[in-house]
Design a protein around this nucleic acid. Structure first.
Lengths: 350, 350
DNA sequence: TATCAACACGAAAACGTTGTAGTAATGTTA
DNA sequence: TAACATTACTACAACGTTTTCGTGTTGATA
């Protein structure tokens, strides 16, 4: 194996000590200009570059942050990564990505793989299975080991760390309010099982909007989809069937709020097949502003979560914590940053 | 800063040497069972885990691979990452992601950030700007430093490394053949400027299919889109306008082949607005099987690139090279693996 | 009882850096 | 000219491991 140029090699060939080489490369005043020039020239010649690993070991920091997400084939998470990367890179950090694939054990394994010194801190959105099991031991252990941790989107109160979220409840309420204001009188919601925090919160917003308008919620109109296989083919059939049944049993539904864009798009598809005209007969609002929303027919009105901002913010919070830690600053209380959403109105609403 | 448990601490508290602790944890036969048990128990108590950075330094390998892609908000790349991650993880490797954002300098910076010992090898898809400038110095430098490199999708012949691609030309030819067999007689192509290798190759396939069927290509029907701002809002307006003009000037176009799914979906949208019925008046085939293809109306027939397979394969090749390098095995000649595509027929073709 | 394994452990080097604490060889001052 | 600064370097420890090469005790053998 070809070996990279090291200080030792430079030192040997230049017939000076390692320290001299190190200092010369850093323009130390201890070293004569002559030597500095010689060393630098030779270093350039041999294409010397300091070994990051050695530095990490010495400095006890890796300048790397780990982000662990449930699924990368997902526009929202992808946006978040982009935001994290951008902020991290411009602060000299690298980003290492772990995929939990919505599985508890994968999440644990990934965290363990990285928590052995490979990274200075974590940014995490919890896997579905973890939410279901409510087993947060690996999180608390990480925190106990004093490794900073920032959660985003799918968070739980039990874990005492910085968090970046959107106001799911409020956003959902705004979406449903909009539907009502635009004339929808009977509004269904396509949501997830309650253990998915964001689904639960958005459902809450839906219910609040109804209540504020004196509309009684109808159990049949609240469809909680088991999203085990979200974004998998076979899962969609189930979803389609449920929407079809809904529209069959309640032909006067004229508004649908979906907690993600895929549900919304599928709902529109089924409705169109059944002869509904969107937005005239039926108005639809989704959540998450991704590719699908922009290019569906009709284009989908949706709540934009600003994933990239969430990512940057999470990175910012994390790097602050890392600094706090390495500089032994007093620990600030954990904070939860709420990124504001906004409703993007497109073709699926009047 | 709270310090992690180290061998030294364990040694001190157990009143044995560091070596003994190290060996005990590895069940060395040199150490008595008694001591092994004591050490292990205490290590577990203090939650000891070996410091990966120290290991990396010692072993001269990081068990980390870097993947650099032009854009993460892109279904295809996302699939590739997933494939890389899967293969890498199950072989004990971590994945660190760099985003070039289609920019040359970002690509260079990212590679330099990682090529200082942080990673054992690269998996890369070239940024658009790099293809345009044809400046491959950072690649050759990386190879000169003996850092293994595998390219995928957007590759160039000038760089002597392993590659993973699909047969763009052949796949495009198959797509266009299918269009012709299904009755399309006047087929347009929505492609990119020639410097994007995949665009150029797919255009070549289009032309070959036409030639094989005795159809003369018409310059007007070959639309090369400057994809500077692909997936950005303002870019799409330009695209829409171009498609509109095409269909206006050539009302008898009855087939469109697009080199990515977004172009295809936009084309369908414009066509529908102009009163075309898909697939009866106009058949469309895209490239890349992403979210859009599955959920467009009508659903889009498309060439599936199997991004995940490409990712796994790339990771496999890279890890082979890494092994070759660290074990000083003889260097095998570089190879180019062609992942087979297949045409997924959906609603946009008859 | 001197010799030699076997056993159980420790010392030290190495991976590539950085920074502190020396240390020679000059030049300057009283 | 003895005491002291300054200059320009070098030695060494440290970061946390692993591993090779000792080494001091045992107990068994001749």
């Amino acid at each position: 194996m070809k070996k990279r140029t090291t200080l030792k090699q430079l030192a040997r060939e230049l017939d000076v000590s390692i320290s001299t080489v190190s200092k010369a490369l850093k323009n130390s005043p201890e070293i004569s200009q002559d030597t500095i020039d010689r060393v630098k020239a030779f270093a350039k010649l041999l294409n010397y570059r300091p070994n990051n690993i050695a530095l990490s070991l010495k400095n006890k920091k890796t300048k790397t942050i780990g982000i662990i997400i449930p699924d990368i084939v997902h526009h929202f998470f992808t946006k978040v990564i982009k935001g994290v990367e951008k902020y991290a890179n411009s602060n000299g950090y690298n980003v290492i990505v772990g995929l939990s694939n919505e599985s508890f054990s994968n999440e644990v394994i990934n965290m363990e793989m990285l928590a052995n010194g490979s990274i200075d801190g974590f940014i995490i959105s919890m896997s579905r299975e973890t939410m279901q099991r409510q087993d947060y031991q690996h999180y608390t252990e990480t925190l106990n080991e004093d490794i900073p941790l920032v959660m985003f989107d799918r968070v739980v109160a039990e874990i005492p760390c910085d968090k970046v979220i959107v106001d799911d409840t409020k956003s959902a309420e705004i979406a449903v309010n909009t539907l009502i204001n635009k004339g929808a009188t009977k509004i269904a919601i396509l949501t997830t099982k309650d253990y998915v925090s964001v689904g639960r919160l958005r459902t809450k917003g839906y219910l609040e909007a109804l209540k504020n308008h004196g509309i009684n919620p109808i159990r049949d109109l609240i469809i909680k989809i088991d999203d085990e296989l979200l974004y998998e083919e076979d899962h969609l059939d189930v979803l389609e069937k449920q929407v079809r049944e809904l529209l069959l049993n309640h032909t006067d539904v004229n508004g649908i709020f979906a907690v993600n864009e895929l549900y919304a798009v599928v709902a529109m598809k089924v409705a169109k097949e059944m002869g509904y005209e969107i937005p005239n007969d039926l108005q639809v609002i989704g959540f998450t502003d991704g590719m699908l929303s922009k290019h569906a027919t009709p284009t989908l009105s949706t709540i934009s979560q600003h994933g990239e901002s969430m990512g940057s913010k999470a990175a910012e919070l994390l790097i602050q914590r890392i600094d706090e830690r390495v500089n032994d600053l007093p620990k600030e209380p954990t904070k939860t940053v709420v990124i504001s959403t906004n409703l993007i109105q497109r073709g699926s609403t009047k």
